[in-house]
Simulated scan of single mutants.
Amino acid sequence: MSKLLDPKVLMAIKELSLAAKTTIDGFMSGINKSTIKGQGLEFSQYRSYQPGDDLRSLDWKMFARSDRYYIRESEIETNISIRFLVDASASMNHKDGDFTKIDYARYLAASLAYLGNLQGDAIGLYVINEAGIFSMAAKQDYQHLARLFYQLEQIKPDKTFITPIHYKELYAGAQKRELLVFITDMYETNEEIFSFLDTLNTLKHEVVVFHLMSPNELELNFKGYSTFEDLETGRSVQIDQDKARAVYKARLQEYLEATRIKLLDRRIFYRMIRTDQPLDAALRDFLNQRNKLNV
């Protein structure tokens, strides 16, 4: 077991589905099975024989009992490919209390990857910053999951977010649509994150965005500080927190609402998470909401 996995978190989410009932390219339903009928493993229903049906699907025991031809249908189990995208730009080093944003991102990705692997899904990883995209193919086995945990542990946030010149990595794996779980602080200077998300949308992936924010960001409560430095650009600014707090919080709420709407318009599932929120509670709330929306 990776040190990134907390038994309390796993107990809270183990009975929930990450993928839920997605609708593209045979993604699984909330219980890891599609609604596609065929020669699967688990019995679903009988239906009357129709001309053109595969005779191998006839149930001869039913014929012997009823003297009628029936096709035995099963639900075909279909696994999906889930890729975790982790923002590794320098702003993810922001710290409040004992955790940086990248710490929270590691635990979040590890827990969901464990859940997906437990449900039989292929798990992959992108680590993203100005240097490019580290790509780890999606596979379904425990050794691969262990390698993914190792790569999460090695992430060292640096510089700014990715530029379009590196998007070729995204297109390289575009043959199969995936469920993409993007973990980020949404820090950008020139709409680079939204440009990135628009690229993911053109590839017809389903995208979930976890927006990480720390309590001191949300409340503008950096005790003892009056000078603030941008972790990505190095620029600094002096702020009287007490005087600026009311205006800051109002503008922050406007920004968060605008972000939510912009992602909703792109049909991207958005969830803002405070880094002081217990991970088990945050994940259980998210997974319950996701399952309800996709029923």
Score class of each variant (00 low, 15 high):
Ile155Arg: 03
Ile162Ala: 06
Phe134Gln: 14
Glu178Gly: 02
Thr202Asp: 07
Glu188Trp: 02
Met136Gly: 01
Tyr126Arg: 11
Glu192Gln: 12
Leu180Glu: 01
Leu125Asn: 07
His144Ala: 07
Leu180Asp: 03
Ala172Asp: 05
Glu153Thr: 08
Asn117His: 15
Phe194Met: 09
Ala122Met: 10
Asp158Gly: 01
Glu169Tyr: 14
Met136His: 09
Ala172Pro: 00
Glu191Gly: 09
Thr199Ala: 14
Gln119Ser: 13
Gln175Val: 06
Asp121Phe: 01
Ala146Asn: 13
Asp198Ala: 15
Asp185Glu: 07
Lys139Gly: 06
Glu153Met: 09
Tyr171Pro: 00
Phe161Cys: 00
Gln175Ser: 12
Val207Gln: 09
Val127Met: 09
Gln151Ala: 13
Phe182Lys: 02
Thr199Pro: 00
Phe196Ser: 00
Tyr167Lys: 04
Thr184Pro: 02
Asp141Gln: 14
Gln143Pro: 00
Phe134Asn: 09
Pro157Tyr: 01
Thr199His: 14
Tyr167His: 14
Asp185Pro: 04
Thr184Val: 03
Phe161Arg: 04
Glu130Gly: 01
Tyr142Cys: 03
Val208Leu: 11
Thr160His: 04
Phe194Glu: 06
His211Phe: 10
Phe196Val: 01
Lys139Ala: 15
Gln140Glu: 05
Ala172Tyr: 13
Ala146Ser: 11
Phe134Tyr: 14
Ser195Cys: 03
Leu148Asp: 03
Tyr150Trp: 08
Phe196Met: 12
Gly173Lys: 06
Val208Asp: 08
Met186Gln: 11
Arg147Gln: 14
Gly124Lys: 15
Met186Leu: 15
Ser195Ala: 07
Ser135Lys: 13
Val181Thr: 11
Ser195Lys: 06
His211Val: 06
His144Val: 05
Ile155Ala: 05
Gly124Ser: 12
Tyr150Leu: 12
Phe196Thr: 00
Ile183Leu: 06
His166Arg: 08
Leu212Met: 12
Asn190Ile: 00
Glu178Trp: 05
Ile165Gly: 02
Ile155Gly: 09
Gly173Pro: 02
Val208Gln: 06
Phe134Ser: 08
